[in-house]
Amino acid sequence: MLTKRQELILFLIVDEFLAAMVPVSSKQIIQKYRLDISSATVRNEMVKLEASGFLTKPHTSAGRMPSREALKFYIGKLSEKLDHESYTEPVPLNVNNHHNPEDLSRGTAAKISALTNHLTGVSFTGKDETVKGVYFTPLNEGILLVIIVLESGDIKEIPVRMDYSVSLETLKILTNYFNQTVVDTPLQELSDLLRTSLKDTALEYTINSVADSIRADLDQPRKFSGYSGFNHLIQQISENTDTLRALYDDLEADQLDKIIDITENDGVDIYLGDELPEDYHSISIITTNFKLAGFDGNLMIIGPEMMGYKKVIRLLHAINNQSTKGSE
């Protein structure tokens, strides 16, 4: 159990170290923060903190460096402090093409990466869009391709497996009919509309097969991800090639959000060390959920374990707070 004085000294040491990335001496702490205690007292407390596993001492320096336990302590105290701050300065997240979640995720990631100088990942889940047209075309034997045109300009292609052949004339009838009936229908309601439109006709079985495939497709949340700033991480942890390789593979497979639980995140969460898979022990992930242009999103900042947490956590709090107010 740390005393109040030890907590203060430890917080200041970690803060100083993360700002300059060099060992911190008792003299630095006394001079910069004008503490009302002697340099000898600070040194004694630093010795106790080292013995408790919060600080380490490089052989070539009189200063101390924080351990992973010290980082966790610092992040906890910093988060408590920033949780109660008010954020009035807006974060400039406006990007072009708000209706396209794929472009929006990439553009937002690039903007935030430029603000933080860290690898940034942004993902959005698709909102309920309006259908502007449905088209049917044979893909190959036994498979019918349903093409759904959305108001945003996006196109959904859903393959439907058929156990019988459908004539081109029938497909033409279906295409013409649905382009007269589905315009301005919400995408989530399309399946039910298809089921009821041509009920008790020779085409009912075909339509039900299409409706089942559309419903199954819509049951899977549509996620759009964008990443920017991998070059920053390469420079920051260039010696950790295994971590860089594992991270790159997860980014390529769009699996990064599988390693941490982002579903219950209603503030800013920080993961580092043994809170991450073994390959990721040399990095930290700071994440928050937010809203932008009507989309629900998640934001991740990925950097070295020793990174400037204060700036990044404050930025993510501001983004989270900004989007919460905007959705009220």
Rank of each mutant, 00 (worst) to 15 (best):
L2A: 04
K4F: 11
I9N: 01
L12H: 03
I13E: 00
F17D: 00
M21T: 11
S25H: 07
R43F: 06
V47P: 01
E50A: 12
S52E: 14
S52R: 14
E69F: 06
I75Y: 02
L78R: 03
E85K: 11
E85F: 10
L93S: 03
N97D: 14
H98S: 13
P101T: 05
R106M: 10
K111R: 15
H118G: 10
T125S: 09
V131F: 05
F136R: 05
L150P: 00
D154M: 13
S165D: 13
L168D: 15
D184S: 15
T206E: 05
T206Q: 04
A211P: 00
D212L: 11
R215M: 08
D219G: 00
Q220P: 00
G229I: 02
F230E: 05
N231R: 10
Q235K: 14
L244G: 08
L247D: 01
Y248C: 03
L256S: 02
D274R: 12
L276T: 08
E278D: 15
T288F: 04
N289K: 12
F290E: 01
A293I: 04
A293H: 05
A293K: 05
G297V: 01
N298A: 12
M306F: 15
L315M: 07
S323D: 02
S327E: 06
E328W: 08
E328I: 11
